[in-house]
Design a protein around this nucleic acid. Structure first.
Length: 438
DNA sequence: TCTGGGGTCCTAGGACCC
DNA sequence: TCTGGGGTCCTAGGACCC
């Protein structure tokens, strides 16, 4: 009996053992650009945020020249000119499509995949412990590169947080060739000691500062910190981080992403906007965009918020305001949102200001499948409104994005964000397919 | 001249109810 | 003079992520 029990216990522990790979695309947006424009290889390249504002993706060469993440590009003009840094507008349609290809490739390596962001995925490797994990990581790395053109780093460990650490090591040390396994107990602590506390997933600058003020400077010190103290100062999330560093998996793989609870479309304008009409057109377009995202996840929304703001970086009088209203019964019908947006705008618009930014945010989101019936009002579900929206979405998905839209969004869109150097949508638009000149 | 956008989760505190 | 207690819900704000 004793041995049976022992045996059972071993199996239980084996079953509980988790193993994760974190695959992260290197300098993702820049890498996407390089797939279709090899002349960018080995060159300093920067991809900008919306409205050509800040550097959000940098090639290693650009990083080495001192371009910082999130840096406004106009502050780097000198550096850009001096080193002929290539500066590109962001092309999210292209990046989204390449991302899907990368994720499809990764799904061949595990039955359980979590798409964590546009350029990152966790792979569950539970039950793979008998594999040569380093070789498997190399195979992942090679295959993604071969099939999509995107270079990736792979980190493997028992928990997501440790896999993040492993991935960081793979990325920082050229000797690893982009893959690293943090699975050997005896190496974990020394490597954690070499990892700054602020470099751990879940520790941002505020917590880094707090921890350092208490003498906790590296990941090993955090791993050994008192649980009570951590929970008190860093909340339950911090406690999970500490346990994950100890090899206890607290953040499970999430294969299906739950529907969003908040959907926002907010933008800076290409130039400053003064008139009500122009503001109304832009916010109608944002409302329409948000409604599309809502329908994409088969939801309806019962609460809409709109905000407008002047440029906070500019001297002079500032104005920012927001207002919200209920949508009853909940809807996903674009005109409901554009009408509400216009009413909200009327209530907060002040003449005489130059506006720089506006946005529409949808709250109170629920599934369109099992929502409440109303006695007197027509619900969105199964109404002609829903039919119309389905038809429009279908047409738009077949034609190029944005072919069919409501006139309230305006035709000229003078407020549209700046994108002075955007590459083509090589993979999603027949008109923009790659041309090879011989 | 020029400074991004879109999410999640947790907590504290107030309102409200019985 | 003396002024309960416990629970839930909502919201604002902060922290974090990519």
């Amino acid at each position: 009996m004793g041995s049976c029990y022992q045996r059972y216990k071993v199996i239980l522990i084996e079953k509980m053992k988790t193993l994760f790979a974190l695959v992260d695309c290197n300098n993702f947006y820049v890498s996407c650009e390089r797939v279709f424009n090899p002349s960018l290889n080995n060159q300093p390249v920067v991809v900008l945020s919306n409205n050509d504002g800040c550097a959000v993706s940098r090639s290693n060469e650009a990083k080495a020249l001192g371009i910082r993440m999130g840096e406004p590009i106009f502050k780097c003009r000198e550096l850009v000119n001096k080193h002929s840094i290539k500066v590109l507008s962001s092309n999210y349609v292209l990046y989204g499509d390449i991302s899907q290809r990368v994720m499809n490739t990764l799904s061949r390596f595990t039955p359980k995949l979590e798409i964590y962001s546009i350029d990152e995925a966790f792979l569950s490797l539970d039950g793979f412990a008998h594999y040569n994990l380093l070789e498997y990581a190399k195979e992942i790395n090679r295959t993604v590169r071969r099939d999509t053109g995107i270079p990736v780093s792979v980190g493997i460990a028992a928990t997501k947080t440790l896999a993040k650490v492993a991935n960081r090591i793979a990325k920082k040390n050229p000797a690893t060739n982009g893959v690293f396994c943090l699975t050997d107990e005896k190496f974990i602590d020394p490597l954690l000691e070499n990892t700054g506390v602020g470099d751990i997933w879940g520790i941002g600058c505020a917590r880094e500062k707090l921890l350092k003020s208490y003498g906790i400077n590296n990941a090993l010190q955090l791993k050994n910190a008192s649980e009570d103290w951590i929970q008190k100062h860093l909340t339950i999330m911090g406690l999970k981080t500490v346990r994950e560093l100890r090899g206890i998996s607290c953040l499970p793989l999430e294969e299906t992403s739950p529907p969003k609870k908040v959907i926002a479309t907010t933008r800076s304008f290409g130039h400053e906007v003064r008139s009500f009409d122009e503001l109304a057109e832009s916010t109608a377009a944002y409302a329409s965009n948000a409604a599309e995202k809502l329908r994409e996840q088969n939801s309806v929304c019962g609460h809409i918020q709109l905000f407008i703001a002047t440029n906070p970086f500019k001297n002079g009088e500032q104005y920012a305001n927001s207002s919200s209203m209920r949508i009853n019964p909940p809807s996903a019908y674009t005109p409901d949102f554009t009408n509400c947006a216009r009413m909200l705008l009327k209530s907060i618009y002040r003449e005489g200001f130059s506006y720089k930014r506006a946005g529409v945010i949808l709250f109170d989101i629920s599934s369109s499948k099992n929502s409440q019936e109303y006695l007197f009002e027509e619900t969105y579900q199964n109404s002609p409104k829903e039919k119309l929206m389905k038809t429009i979405d279908k047409i738009n998905s077949r034609l190029n994005y944005g072919k069919l839209f409501f006139a309230s969004e305006g035709l000229d869109k003078p407020w549209y964000m700046r994108q002075s150097n955007r590459s083509k949508r090589f993979t999603t638009s027949w008109n923009e397919i790659l041309e090879i000149k011989i």
